[in-house]
Write a protein that binds this DNA or RNA. Structure first.
Lengths: 358, 358
DNA sequence: CGATGTCATGACATCGGTGTCATGAATGAA
DNA sequence: TTCATTCATGACACCGATGTCATGACATCG
């Protein structure tokens, strides 16, 4: 592998001049520059980031730690759309001429110290700490000395974080339902004590308040997803209870639940959306676009969150936070309206024309 | 940040001895070792991988390039389960005391040269080149000089690769259907010219041949998924044609299509699985486990492929390929049998008991 | 015309580890 | 006892960049 010395010799200049050509940190004669560039091309020269890091004490690496805090999800694949987070963050980080180093703990919390050790050895300049679902976390003390941004999670110490606007998203969805003529809107929540769940329910309630509609509490029920501990029946029962309150639309805590509700409703001979509209949350396109009819869902904006988090972290590293920048930032996203929701126009009901949001 | 010199001074030894304690490459007196370890702990010493890389000419980095070859998938999120690939590969790579460097092109092929340049600057020891779906690729010449393993793709030059056993998986699924009493098995393929599609159809045919059943060609139809170019109707029509041939089960080219088929069948008042069994392919658990009833599907073993690929790459790097190791390796996986498939016992039909495969 | 400044370049040290070789002490074999 | 090994350790150079400082050639200014 060619070094800067080889290039210097081939171009008949000193290594330092080659360095100057690469970094543009001092004027270089045009002819010299061209000679150096030719030599670099001929020798297929690629500078060594190790050497550069050593001398400059800047690694140009950002560490991302994902699946970090799982309580052994043997069943859940909640973290799956994290790939979008990675893409969002990577775009921003590449622009700052840095490289993203990703460590996935695969849900094994005990591996985290090892991964952090690796990050430290590589002298990462900052860390993005990603949770698989919106929740509170407690950071290990060993992280205190590095610039860090939490993504999809927050802690009690006010560490900078980027969160999805679950309350606002659910508000927008339910607001849209009401504007489309729905008055009796059911909500199936999850039993878990997740931040996302309670925020979404809060958004549901605020939308009702906003339109001056009282919430019939029979319309709000706790469902569940299949898991080793609770059986399907929980959702079946919740659906049963909620149907007694005669809703025209059922909002589900997430897309997975909505997918099950499709099946359960149809088992009862209820046509979607003619007899019952359904909405989800997350807008996992793999689900929402491919269900029939297409599922209306509030987007969980992973890509945007990744980008925002990277942006915030870079400012932390550079010591240039915007003045008055809050430590906690919410990321909103539009609702994707699809055919699972019927517009109720007075007594007449009509199908939405099929549309996609970009 | 403490260096090896600081540790050496604190422990009253030479830097080289500290190095020996860390690497265990030469005997060190027990008392000395403990003194050094105390000093490292006190100073919070973390060795610099940059310095180590520079001296030893081994970076300990493996590059993975994903979403590498997309033809701008504005619509597809095919690459989503790649996260499993990452986890599989990372597990193996960590064990070899190396670190995985991931670059995601986000489907923008023009970004690949930049990403490769970054890999080179970091002196990665080898590359995992991941395609989002099983296909043939052509490698840029600039990759020729690095150990490389293709994942989920192959090229014309016989570059080492890891592929899913689509033919075998579909064979196992259809074989299982026949053993469960099905004789008229429909197959909905995709119009795309993907390696996966034709292999799966081949497996379908081989299973029939294996049991001496002739394939009624009306049972094999080309469907499609929603996209900007073809409308839903394509799948509707295909389903229409296939139903005329009176199947007892419909196999779909993948889980997304199966999800749509659930909706389309139910629109026609066909109960799943009582009146029609359905099977998918990929076993995206986000879909297969949460559909109601649970979707029977052949697993696309991403995690295992990631692990196998990493393993193969490490052997390439170490120059210790197993003797007679084929350059192309297929990874098989079991079929996940769920409630969407009815067992037809003579004239009597029965539901599978609900079960999960681990 | 001499002083000063800018341009273009090179010599040299340095970042933090590890490979090589040397050295002295202890141990075992002849 | 003496020579050969093994053990335990240190001195020193080196990996490949870049920061600092020095230098010579011109250009500019008063």
């Amino acid at each position: 592998m060619a070094t800067i010395y080889d290039v210097a010799k081939a171009a008949g200049v000193s290594p330092k001049t080659v360095s100057r050509v690469m970094n543009g940190d001092a004027p270089v004669n045009q002819a010299t520059r061209e000679a150096v560039e030719r030599a670099m091309a001929t020798l297929n020269y690629v500078p060594s980031s190790a050497a550069r890091t050593m001398r400059s004490q800047r690694s140009g690496l950002i560490g991302m730690i994902t699946g970090a805090i799982s309580t052994t999800h043997q069943f859940e694949d909640a973290g799956l759309p994290e790939i979008y987070l990675v893409q969002g963050a990577q775009r921003v980080i590449d622009q700052s001429n840095r490289t993203l180093l990703i460590a996935d703990s695969g849900g094994q919390a005990e591996r985290i110290p090892t991964l952090l050790q690796t990050f430290r050895e590589h002298r990462v300049e900052g860390i993005l700490y990603v949770a698989e679902y919106h929740r509170e976390v407690t950071l290990p003390d060993s992280l205190r000395d590095l610039p860090i941004v939490l993504v999809n999670c927050f802690d009690a110490d006010g560490t900078p974080c980027i969160l999805p606007d679950d309350e606002g998203g659910q508000f927008a969805l339910v607001d849209g339902l009401i504007r489309r003529g729905h008055q009796r809107i059911a909500y199936l929540t999850l039993p878990e004590h997740q931040a996302a769940c309670s925020l979404r329910v809060a958004g549901y309630r605020r939308a009702h308040a906003h339109h001056g509609i009282a919430v019939d509490e029979r319309l709000v029920q706790v469902g569940a997803l299949p898991s080793p501990t609770h059986e399907y029946d929980l959702l079946w029962d919740a659906l049963d209870r909620v149907l007694k309150a005669e809703p025209t639309v059922i909002c589900c805590a997430n897309d997975k639940m909505a997918m099950r509700v499709y099946g359960l409703l149809r088992d009862r001979g209820v046509a979607i959306p003619q007899q019952m509209s359904v909405a989800g949350y997350d807008d996992y396109r793999m689900i929402a676009e491919h269900l029939h009819p297409g599922l209306t869902s509030a987007e969980l904006p992973y890509a945007a969150m990744g980008a925002r988090a990277a942006d915030k972290l870079l400012r932390l590293i550079n010591g240039t936070p915007k003045s008055g920048e809050p430590s906690r930032e919410l990321v909103s996203a539009p609702v994707a309206w699809r055919d699972s929701v019927l517009t109720r126009d007075g007594n007449v009901t009509q199908l939405n024309s099929r549309r996609r949001e970009t």
